[in-house]
Design a protein around this nucleic acid. Structure first.
Lengths: 195, 195
DNA sequence: AGGTTATATGAACATGTGTTCAGAAAAAAG
DNA sequence: CTTTTTTCTGAACACATGTTCATATAACCT
């Protein structure tokens, strides 16, 4: 046997991507083999190499596009003058964007150490760019006198760490709605950085 | 060749533990082989099995003892009546305990998915027990009227996520002392849960 | 000193790894 | 229908995996 019925590039490509995403998120990059991914797609391992140069590129591709989508989505947001308003928007945006993509998010910070040095540097730069947006909000707020944090860099990391935590426990069928989660976290963030 | 000069159980045992700790933390459980661990210890792979039944047990052993040390250290703390005092102590304790053991901490939450179901359940129970201690503080504080969080369970997870974040950036040779870090985080936590 | 035990070696086992590639067959083009 | 191109198979490569075990030797005991 060789080429099977109904085989098509436009279909197999995305399917490989989705299978890798799911399996990396569930078992971890190092624990997943190319043969497992191929099996999930319904294809032999060799066929994967028509779409991806190697395993490392699959991981990097997933992480890079995730970070770029994050930055692109963020860039489309309004940017009010008021720092308090900008922070509120950031909190809501962050929570919703991340809860919509639990697998990408999980991979993006669990598999950093499995990137080659070169790839790591690139992903890290994107992550830094995102964090800097929050830090700028905090700096503006401190300058405006509405926030009172002694160190904006640390406050940035603290807020992001807190918000990222949502992904570890939130379930759509749980007792809290997305709006409620957003309200609760916004309340805590607002108070934490208050002047 | 067989038994080498200077070989001794009291030495090799802990050395295996330390090597596994370091390698698992650096490369991840799935990416580290028994032969790598053995090489770090200066021994052949087969010798590891005089000390550990299998690879899974090494991971579980590291995580279990870490969590038990955490609970034991926490249990030795004073428990003032005042919820605000207890929370302050919790924050300081958590930050210091975790910064003293970055590798154990990293493994304890990065490698949960590599535990067998049975082992995962046990580790999870220990983690829950620790989290419950914080939640009890928050509940008391709410009852006393000094804290104002709408949901103590979520506030617990949010605070712990925020505190855990310290481990991702803190360096001993960095610009901030441990005391300064503790002060900054205590400030944010105090305000975040304030009434 | 000699005998026993603890602790290691190193080869072996069966299986899995990422990746390559010649060839086959389906789809698209003529 | 015939030719070309796209897409996949299946075998192969060289090496790595966790684990077991007969065997050898250093350390300890009497």
């Amino acid at each position: 046997m060789a080429r099977t019925q109904g085989s098509h590039s436009d279909i197999t490509g995305p399917r490989i991507r989705k299978a890798a995403l799911r399996l990396f998120a569930q078992y971890g990059f190092a624990a997943v083999s190319m043969r497992q991914i191929a099996k999930e797609v319904g294809v032999q391992a060799g066929a994967l190499y028509n779409y991806v140069p190697d395993k490392q590129s699959m991981l990097f591709g997933l992480m890079q596009s995730h970070m770029e989508e994050l930055l692109a989505a963020r860039a489309e947001r309004p940017a009010p003058r008021d720092a308090m308003e900008r922070l509120r928007d950031f909190v809501g945006f962050h929570i919703r964007f991340h809860l919509e993509r639990p697998e990408e998010v999980f991979i993006a910070y669990m598999e950093l150490r499995n990137l080659t040095d070169e790839n790591f540097t690139q992903v890290e730069a994107l992550r830094r760019a995102y964090e800097n947006q929050l830090e700028e909000i905090l700096r503006d707020g401190v300058a405006q006198g509405v926030f009172g944090v002694p160190d904006t860099k640390i406050a940035t990391l603290a807020v992001i760490a807190m918000l990222n935590g949502v992904n570890t426990w939130y379930r759509r069928e749980g007792r809290l709605s997305l709006d409620e989660v957003e309200t609760i976290y916004w309340d805590m963030v607002r108070k934490a950085v208050a002047a």
